[in-house]
């Protein structure tokens, strides 16, 4: 019983595990899905997982610098989403699809 209670008592490890599961789900999505937009979303999910781990470490170690890096990651993620979506739109205009397994030709 005490084992169970200590499992439910949240520590840094729990946040790390949650972040890891999110990261793995994002990774699986990038591997498995064929839709470019969904792949971009899974990338965002992976970045979010990293952010969670940064914030958790910053909280438990008492160092606010981790949050500054979260700030930077967010900016880069927003920029990445913008470029990714612009590329998706131009691919759609060019080929009429955004399924990655159909885009096999090296020369457009």
């Amino acid at each position: 019983m005490t084992d169970l209670l200590s499992f439910f008592q949240v520590s840094l490890n729990h946040y790390l595990a949650l972040g890891l599961i999110l990261f793995t789900l994002g990774l699986a999505g990038v591997f498995i899905r064929k839709n470019l937009i969904v792949i971009l979303m899974c990338l965002e999910l992976m970045l979010n997982a990293v952010n969670l781990i940064f914030v958790a470490f910053s909280h438990y170690q008492g160092i606010p610098l981790g949050q500054v890096y979260v700030f930077f990651i967010m900016t880069v993620a927003a920029a990445e989403a913008g470029v990714g979506l612009a590329i998706a739109i131009s691919i759609y205009k060019r080929f009429g699809t955004i399924k990655m397994d159909l885009l096999t030709a090296l020369k457009g």
Binding site: I21, L22, V38, C42
Partner: peptide
């Protein structure tokens, strides 16, 4: 977690 799982497994983007 439910959100993250459904991101990967939803058929509709």
């Amino acid at each position: 977690l439910v959100g993250a799982i459904c991101v990967v497994f939803s058929k509709n983007p």
